[in-house]
Design a protein around this nucleic acid. Structure first.
Length: 868
RNA sequence: GCGAGAGUGGCGGAAUUGGUAGACGCACUGGACUUAGGAUCCAGCUCUGGCGACAGAGUGGGAGUUCAAGUCUCCCCUCUCGCACCA
């Protein structure tokens, strides 16, 4: 065995061997229990970053561990390859998105291989390939056929300069992220998936995902946002029109004094027509369309609105209520109309105060019912709590919770409303006015209207020769060779293709099924393969996908289930959301965040190299280019190799927590591997010829007995840490403890009978337990120990219960709960003996002398507490 | 505002069911081996007092339950994350 550890050499060798032996290639095997381990696939943005390294290292440890436990492990990797960055990069670099994407894939694949991840590379997929997206188009057609997909006109973020729709994430403080122009709301025809049909089902099953973090479950529930309430219909005065509102507080209807409609509400324009307010309303609506809708802008926004020149009638009081259009009424929630009860809703209250609208209190706080009635003229904020009904006709005197039901029932009986629920979740708009995505397989015929492309014509290929346009406008919209087609229904040449592409979240909503049979040509997937592998047993990824990707995937699985394509409803049994990789940032006043190279140290203080100003340092942030605190994994691979990199990612923090980068931490990991290496090198000659000790306790004495116990204790701890809770950091520290014990054993007794055998057992244990974590390193020592089969196929060791038993235990003695003494006793000494021993203990004596012993608590094999 | 999570040495982090707080590692300090070491090995390392044995305090703060609380209950503070004019 070489005296020094040379990671790069070893790693390259074993990566090649694993590939040659096809160790990670899997197929369905009904004899073996399957385990589907999946990490969120990457967007091929260029190079892998530390976030990828951490995510995939965690996954790889679990995959390798499960393999050693005898599972048939599916562990695939692929590329979420469509998306906007490719277009932007292509424009910037005068290349093509496809070229850029495939180059990145090649780079990143090579990097992942260099990390030694145990993927079945035969199953690699890229979502931008026609073999993949054709089945997505196929599913789209099915969804159109089943009315699960539809087209409607709706408002989107629109940048006039770039002539494109922007996702909410691409609107920064109300401006386009690319050109800085103000974003406005534009009405466009778009395709939608009816995810709201499954709102209840998605919500109900949230409570049936015990393997998911509570945090994610809560986020999903909040996103779906189910509220119970009533839909109430208000007749418009002097009109046939009716305004329908949703409210969670039907009990307050007697206090409803005006009505607010969202600016986009169709009745706003309609009802104001021909009134004196028409122009003012028109102006307000246009102003609102131009306004920033981001959370930040909304924060300090004052309530604002205009009277639209019409009234409606309160169905309970018969009173006329003025109708306003207001900035706080949202078209996308409920019905886009609010019955305003200023006494009991803060927004309505502010609005009423501003426009001097009447305020009527209808719920009286119970504790003040006697002496302090609510006074609408002087109250400073709305009262939103519970209480007793007042000013509410026959409902006066009852509790408002009761009134909620009674009033709803009353409205229902009089056909003015009904009990209902409302969801925050909206249908999923999937149209993107973008080039680098899967084309939506529909045709617009001037005669037949919207016609689906026949299945046999799929895939509708994304033309890869399109010239990208400056500014990001989709070239598809003007690419005549793509647009021109004949109508599949009537054959007319007056037909044009849909030029929108699908949201890239559509691709990532079913890729895990595709992995089960990635080359299947007769459908989205082979049913038998999916039946065998799905659902995913363990999914691992960043918490940033806690809502959208995971919700869409859960929804898509329901669609597939509804179509009879799969037999399960939930795609991911267990979910682990790993924390971010962070690092300290450096910044100076004029130059903002500084690259480490631009920082210099003088007298233990940091200065900016560019301007010489002092540098503020210390804020630990997520690694990102903009914060200039990224570490390139390549650097680590070059200097320390993959195993050290993996070890550090796992050891520095438990997976769900944020990991703070530390150069010394990496160094420490490297040191540990070297330490083990030297230990192995020292013992290999002595240990290689013998068979490992079988672990039976009792025959060994002294250090060897301790070591033997430590071996089994370590197996126990590592297994529990990995299996139950993925706490690799404590698993590693357990192995470190074992190594520390081994370190204390000298080679001077190496010719004893037992020493080589126990040391061999210890060494093998260390290597096998580390195999999922630092696979190349473990493999190399494993082979040196004389094994001819890969450690990948080695069985996970079992610990011996009998080897864990100690014959001597440490008893702690407390006096009044404070630790006063400790001593060793044979294990399982009876309570009375322990007690006597404790009471007669010299140190204890000094604390209890002259005092009355009131009570003595004895916990077997553990402690004595003497109460005086 | 609503919701979720977290506060433990100089630092990252450990502590089954309440039972030795600080495992393991980093940093630091001393020593050994060295021409030298940023390599390696040995030792120390929560704070306060003491040469020392030892004593006292100590898991964000405050109460409580208990023989015993980092862990359980209540109140408060701080931080992080998510959603946010959701009717």
């Amino acid at each position: 065995m070489e005296q020094t550890y040379t990671p790069q050499q070893i790693e390259a060798k074993w990566q090649q061997t694993w590939q040659d032996w096809q160790l990670f290639t899997v197929s369905e095997d009904p004899e073996k229990e399957k385990y589907y381990l999946l990490e969120m696939f990457p967007y091929p943005s260029g190079k892998i970053h530390m976030g990828h390294v951490r995510n995939y290292t965690i996954g790889d440890v679990v995959a390798r561990y499960k393999r050693m436990r005898g599972f048939n492990v599916l562990h695939p990797m692929g590329w979420d390859a469509f998306g906007m960055p490719a277009e932007n990069a292509a424009i910037a670099n005068r290349t093509h998105p496809a070229e850029w994407t495939y180059e990145n894939i090649d780079t990143m694949r090579a990097q992942l291989k260099q990390m030694g991840f145990s993927y079945d590379w035969n199953r690699e997929i890229a979502t931008c390939r026609p073999e993949y997206y054709r089945w997505e188009q196929w599913l789209f057609l099915k969804m159109v056929e089943k009315n699960m997909a539809y087209r409607k006109e709706s408002f989107v973020n629109w940048c006039e300069d770039c002539q494109t729709v922007l996702a909410n994430e691409q609107v920064e403080a109300g401006m386009c992220w690319r050109c800085g122009q103000a974003v406005r709301q534009k009405k466009l025809w778009q395709w939608f998936f009816r995810i709201t049909d499954f709102a209840d089902d998605l919500l109900v099953h949230c409570d049936q995902l015990p393997g998911w973090p509570d945090k994610v479950i809560t986020m999903q529930k909040n996103w779906i946002g189910k509220s119970y309430g009533a839909e109430i219909r208000f007749a418009v005065a002097d009109s046939e029109q009716v305004i329908s509102v949703f409210t969670t507080r039907p009990d307050t209807i007697f206090g409803a004094t005006f009505m607010c409609l969202a600016p986009e509400h169709p009745l706003v324009v309609e009802l104001s027509q021909g009134t004196a307010e028409e122009n003012a309303v028109q102006a307000f609506v246009e102003k609102m369309a131009m306004q920033d809708r981001s959370a930040k802008a909304v924060e300090g926004n004052e309530k604002e609105g205009v009277f639209i020149g019409a009234h409606c009638v309160n169905p309970m009081t018969g009173q006329k209520m003025p109708i306003y259009t207001a900035n706080f009424a949202l078209m996308e929630y409920g019905t886009g109309a609010v019955m305003s009860v200023p006494a009991h809703d803060q927004r309505d209250f502010e609005f009423a105060r501003k426009y001097e609208l009447p305020i009527i209190a209808v719920v009286q706080p119970q504790e003040t019912a006697q002496d302090e009635p609510l006074t609408p003229d002087t109250m400073e904020k709305a009262y939103v709590g519970e209480g007793i009904m007042i000013n509410s006709g026959q409902f006066n005197g009852s509790h408002n919770k009761q009134a909620q039901q009674d009033i709803t029932a009353h409205l229902e009986a009089n056909k003015h409303g009904r009990q209902t629920v409302s969801f925050r979740l909206r249908d999923w708009g999937i149209s993107r006015q973008r080039y680098w995505g899967a084309p939506i397989p529909m045709v617009h015929c001037s005669i037949c209207g919207i016609v689906p492309v026949p299945e046999t014509d799929l895939p509708i290929l994304l033309p890869e020769d399109a010239q990208l346009l400056e500014g990001g406008k989709s070239p598809l919209a003007t690419l005549e060779t793509f647009i021109q087609t004949t109508c599949p229904k009537c054959g007319s040449a007056q037909a044009r293709r849909e030029t929108d592409t699908m949201d890239t979240f559509v691709e990532s909503s079913w890729y895990f099924e595709r992995y089960c049979s990635p080359r299947y040509e007769d459908g989205m997937f082979d049913k038998a393969a999916v039946d065998y592998w799905m659902p995913v047993d363990q999914y691992i990824g960043g918490v940033e996908h806690a809502i959208l990707h995971l919700l869409y995937s859960r929804y898509f699985t329901r669609v597939l289930h509804e179509l009879g394509l799969v037999s399960y409803k939930e795609p991911f049994t267990r979910l682990l959301t790993q924390g971010m990789v962070c690092k300290e940032t450096n910044a100076c006043e004029t130059h903002g965040f500084l690259h480490p190279d631009d920082v210099q140290v003088r007298d233990k203080q940091l200065f900016c190299k560019i301007c010489g100003q002092p540098v503020t340092t210390g804020r630990v942030e997520k690694m990102s280019k903009s914060k200039k605190n990224v570490i390139d994994p390549n650097l680590l691979l070059d200097r320390y190799g993959a195993d050290t990199t993996r070890l550090f990612c796992l050891f520095a923090a438990p997976p769900e927590r944020d990991l703070e980068w530390s150069e010394q931490g990496v160094e420490g990991g490297f040191r540990f591997l070297n330490r083990v290496w030297r230990l192995a090198a020292k013992w290999i000659g002595i240990v290689k010829p013998v068979t490992p000790y079988d672990g039976v306790p009792g025959q060994l004495t002294g250090d060897l007995a301790d070591l033997n116990r430590k071996i089994h204790e370590t197996i126990y701890r590592v297994t529990r840490d990995i299996d139950d809770r993925f706490h690799f950091n404590t698993a590693i520290s357990a192995v470190m403890e074992l190594v520390n014990v081994m370190h204390g054993i000298g080679t001077d007794h190496a010719d004893d009978d037992d020493t080589p055998a126990v040391m061999r057992a210890a060494l093998e244990t260390v290597v096998v337990l580390l195999a999922p974590i630092v696979p190349h390193f473990a493999e190399e020592i494993w082979q040196t120990l004389g094994h001819t089969q890969s450690i990948v196929c080695a069985p996970w060791p079992a610990y011996r219960e009998d080897a864990l038993i100690k014959d001597e235990v440490l008893i702690v003695v407390q006096v009044n709960g404070k630790l006063r003494s400790r001593f060793n006793l044979p294990a399982d000494t009876d309570q009375e003996t322990i007690k006597q021993q404790a009471l007669s203990d010299e140190r204890v004596q000094s604390f209890i002398a002259g005092k009355t012993i009131r009570k003595v608590i004895v916990v077997k094999n553990k402690l004595v507490n003497i109460v005086v």
